[in-house]
């Protein structure tokens, strides 16, 4: 099979839901990159400033909403009423598997954040060793973004391979 034929077959096999999930995944990945880039390039004063952190979180929220709204408007234009069609049983199951991993990551993130908060209160841990204020908050935001990315990636992978439980 030639490369163009393989590409054509791939484009024909991709569903509208996969396109939607891919866009959600791209948006979430970009938001994660934006957040981490800002945190890692921030100065010590910025990291210690609640105002700077609030602004960053506000930017993350605004970017998320704007990008999602734009992408869904574009999808609504190119879709053939597929956006309004309900999920079938298999898609609902795939969605549940995605949410299962999301829950694991969020629970782990919250546990690490609580442990980090307690460690900071006791005077040890990475937030003191590396001088990173508000570390529990950063951990929870990262866990949230990672959970979103994992959710979309899992749904895409399971939807493409067909095997839900494997």
């Amino acid at each position: 099979m030639t490369r163009s034929a393989a590409l054509k077959e791939f484009l024909q096999s991709i569903s509208f839901r996969e396109v939607t999930l891919s866009i959600d995944l791209l948006v979430s990945t970009y938001i994660g990159y934006f957040y981490l880039k800002n945190v890692f390039s921030a100065s010590s004063e910025q990291l210690a400033s609640p105002v700077w952190l609030s602004e960053l979180l506000l930017q993350v929220i605004i970017y998320s909403i704007v990008l999602m709204v734009i992408s869904y408007i574009v999808l609504a234009f190119i879709s053939d009423d597929e956006l309004e069609q309900p999920l079938d049983v298999r898609e609902k199951q795939i969605s549940l598997v995605g949410y299962k991993y999301t829950t694991y990551i969020l629970q782990t993130g919250i546990c690490i954040a609580i442990f980090q908060y307690q460690a900071h209160a006791q005077g040890f841990g990475p937030s003191i060793e590396y001088n990173i204020p508000f570390l529990p908050l950063h951990i929870m935001v990262c866990a949230f973004l990672l959970a979103e990315i994992t959710n979309y990636a899992t749904q895409l992978y399971k939807g493409r391979t067909g095997a839900i439980y494997g």
Binding site: R17, E18, D88, G159
Partner: peptide, 22 residues
């Protein structure tokens, strides 16, 4: 049958067992 084409593909490939209704 009211499912997506991807679901039919998965059923045909024996990667997904359909519900009784389907």
């Amino acid at each position: 049958i009211g499912v997506t084409r991807q679901t039919v593909m998965a059923i045909e490939a024996n990667k997904y067992s359909p519900s009784l209704e389907v």
